[in-house]
Design a protein around this nucleic acid. Structure first.
Lengths: 116, 116, 116, 116
DNA sequence: GTGGTCTAGACCACT
DNA sequence: GTGGTCTAGACCACC
């Protein structure tokens, strides 16, 4: 994965993991990679991974079992909320960018109907 | 403007200018800033500006008048095509992301109806 | 301030600051010490202070102005919620400890009536 | 049991034992563990245990029968006084904290009525 | 083995 | 000056 320079790595990776959770490629209750594994996978510092897992945990997306590892939350409501948030963000971006270049609401909806 | 590290600056600026053209903040036939002006505005190298104007001209978006400067094309069809291209690219990208996290077409359209 | 060994420093200091906010010795909107100042005051590492302010911010207790500093939230509802949380925690502790040594509810209430 | 770093271990263990006596999990007249047993139970030094029993005996909570061991006092008045002391100390501490964050007597009593 | 915490020191962007 | 991020390396508690 390549990182964008203007967004903190820990946020980019957190979003990446959240996408995998929301899309179902990581299941509720599933164990996430160990901090050292993930650090190696992204070639980042283990402390940065700790921060990522911290971020996820503070959002209720994951929880940790001491000495065992970090797990995805099994709470379906949280996963739903997460999907809601992420799709809202993406939709907002879509609307703003298209509006900036002068698209009307109808044009946008037409595009989506055609492209999806 | 902030540049992303993984995309050439000249492309990022070209897209930025094209957005302004497509949205109407720069009008057909209008004179674009001089190389030195644009270099100063974006705090980039004048060589990079030359590349930007090359890029725009090769797409038919602008043309140069020897000794006078660079002008936006007056051909409405080209501007329309440009808007079409840009909005398509944006829509494709974001729809892919939205699909990846499991959004249906109906969900997206509903969101747009609500937020626009 | 002396730290208890079994509780993370960043949590102890965060609680300490929250007490000051709830009790009114730090007012809503007031500027908190700079990270380096607080680090010196508690003789801890600036990184640990960053974590403390992070913790407070993620709880909505504070916010930061880039290049200016960290400020206590001006949202009265958040301060109220904070007081609620902290008094609940203390009351729970009081109840649990006294119950552990065999006090009845009536004894506890009598004590409070007498001591307060 | 976890020890706090800033309070002598012998005092922490003495309090722990007194809690058990006051709550009734250790009965009046009951034999307390031998020095070596208690040292093993808390993984502390036998010398520290001697100090603990000294502390208890000086408060009249326990007494030693030469060659037999240490026993909890059978004097109900002493146990009552002990309970009084311990619950007073605890209540004082926590009431101070609650007052410091601006809780009124009524709020605390209401909370206790709700939670107990 | 796991995550959690802390220090030290660096570089960045913003004001 | 401010906070924000990241790396490096250490030690701890839990399993």
């Amino acid at each position: 994965m390549e990182f964008k320079s203007n967004i903190p790595i820990y946020l980019q990776v957190a979003v990446d993991i959240k996408k995998q959770i929301v899309s179902g490629s990581i299941l509720p209750g599933e164990k996430l990679p160990s901090t050292r594994e993930l650090a190696a996978a992204y070639t980042i510092n283990p402390n940065t991974v700790a921060r990522i897992y911290n971020e996820l945990e503070s959002q209720g997306v994951s929880f940790t079992r001491r000495g065992l590892g970090t797990y995805v939350s099994e709470d379906a409501a949280i996963i739903r909320r997460l999907k809601q948030e992420m799709s809202d963000t993406l939709t907002d971006e879509l609307i703003n960018e298209l509006r900036a270049i002068g698209c009307t609401k109808e044009e946008i909806i037409e595009k989506i109907n055609k492209k999806f």
